[in-house]
């Protein structure tokens, strides 16, 4: 199908983009990589009056480190994320996850900021942001605001972004000695939306798994941290006890790909695979 008619404006700076967004409000949609927005427009699931193209804003570009954090500009394209040495060093779960995001011709355009702001429950990057304890940086006419990823994803395609805010960057703590990560997703075909997926981040301390965060996606209405399962694993409770606790952590949904019971089963399959990959000793114990 063809998109309905809309106006288009290419913002040249962040202040200009914020001004345009304030002026047009909910009639506007921000356009970055467009790999979720364009399908929605073509299918007429979305019919904004104006698109504000933010893809040329220099303020939203670049990957850098400070003394404590890795900062990834919102406009970082998936292919850039995939190839960035700093990301591989400090957030390798992102490097691993990105290969599962659609296909090369989509990864060349899609952006991390767009994926997080879109908050598709089936998307890989929101779950990675949760697993990595990422901080989301947003800008509005009132200034900058930073919130934890835990508080950012509020529901189905819903986030804490206010109507006049633009997501500008993602910040992640620098990697520490002992950091371990794992990622897995189950999909019918390469590049398809996952039936269920898991991004995991933790640290091995004194031979034990600590600071474990399990970010599930494609199960329920939003990317979800499995906090009970993670607590059991870090307390030494074993993989099977953690797998059982996923029934409390997750709210699996039914759709054409799988029913809720199948999803929960597959979430447990992924937990076993991903955790035993991160901590081979746990596999032997389980």
């Amino acid at each position: 199908m063809k998109a309905s008619a809309f106006d288009y404006v290419r913002a040249k700076s962040l202040p200009e983009a914020l001004d345009l967004l304030a002026r047009h409000g909910e009639a506007a949609k921000l356009l970055a990589g467009g790999q979720s927005l364009l399908p929605a427009l073509n299918l007429r699931l979305s019919a904004p009056e104006i698109l504000i193209d933010i893809s040329h804003l220099p303020e939203l570009r670049g990957i850098s480190t400070t003394a404590t954090s890795l900062r990834i500009g919102a406009l970082t394209r998936h292919v850039e994320l995939q190839n960035a040495a700093l990301v591989a060093e400090h957030a390798p779960v992102l490097t691993q996850a990105i290969g599962h995001v659609a296909h090369a011709a989509i990864r060349s355009r899609g952006t991390i900021g767009g994926s997080l702001a879109n908050a598709d429950p089936a998307a890989e990057l929101p779950a990675c942001a949760l697993a990595l304890h990422a901080r989301i940086v947003m800008q509005s006419p009132r200034g900058e605001r930073v919130i934890a990823a835990d508080d950012f994803f509020t529901g189905l395609f819903a986030t804490a972004l206010l109507p006049d805010e633009i997501l500008t960057a993602v910040e992640i703590n620098l990697a520490q000695p002992g950091d371990v990560h794992g990622f897995g997703e189950l999909a019918r075909r390469s590049g398809d939306y996952a039936i269920v997926g898991l991004a995991a981040q933790g640290r091995v301390q004194n031979g034990k798994l600590a600071a474990l965060r399990l970010g599930y996606f494609s199960i329920g209405t939003k990317a979800t941290l499995a906090t009970k399962a993670a607590a059991i694993l870090t307390a030494g409770g074993g993989i099977e006890a953690a797998a059982a606790a996923l029934a409390d952590d997750l709210e699996p949904h039914d759709d054409l790909q799988a029913d809720a019971a199948t999803r929960l089963h597959l979430a447990r399959v992924l937990l076993r695979r991903v955790i035993s990959g991160m901590m081979p000793s746990l596999k032997a114990a389980a």
Binding site: G34, L43, A105, I106, S108
Partner: peptide
């Protein structure tokens, strides 16, 4: 809507879905 790949073209040296890029972009 970006699934089939029949519209694959190159934009600025990288392959893209031609149906998921606006001409104005």
């Amino acid at each position: 809507h970006g699934v089939c790949g029949a519209c694959t073209i190159r934009l600025d040296g990288a392959i893209v879905r031609g149906c998921l890029v606006l001409a104005v972009q």
